[in-house]
């Protein structure tokens, strides 16, 4: 069976309880721009991965493995994998 093309979106965010000085700075900057009502801001990363895999499930598995091994540092970060296509 030929592999199919998938687009996978990976979102990496800091775990709860991990200090996020960059998020805090962004929060402050939003306030100084006059945006009211901002409770808090946490920043993270997004990866767009295009890959060939046998199935949606296989794509999900291989990208989760990529997250565990490189894309996220699971000491401080959570990741979410969203497979499209």
């Amino acid at each position: 069976m030929a592999d199919k093309k998938f687009h996978v979106k990976v979102t990496v965010t800091l775990k709860n309880g991990v200090l996020d000085p960059q998020g805090k700075a962004i929060e402050g900057a939003l306030g100084s721009l006059g945006f009211d009502g901002v409770g808090s801001v946490r920043q993270g990363k997004v990866f767009d991965v295009n890959l060939n895999a046998a199935s949606k499930k296989a794509a999900q598995e291989v990208v989760s493995d990529m997250c565990e091994k490189l894309l996220a540092n699971t000491v401080i970060e959570n990741y979410a994998v969203e497979v499209n296509g």
Binding site: L19, P21, Q22, A25, N73, V75, I76
Partner: peptide, 17 residues
């Protein structure tokens, strides 16, 4: 060494940025 898992914890952006 922390990224390689040879030491515990992690080194984040300085608190003062």
């Amino acid at each position: 060494l922390t990224e390689a898992g040879l030491l515990p914890g992690s080194l984040m952006r300085n608190a003062g940025l």
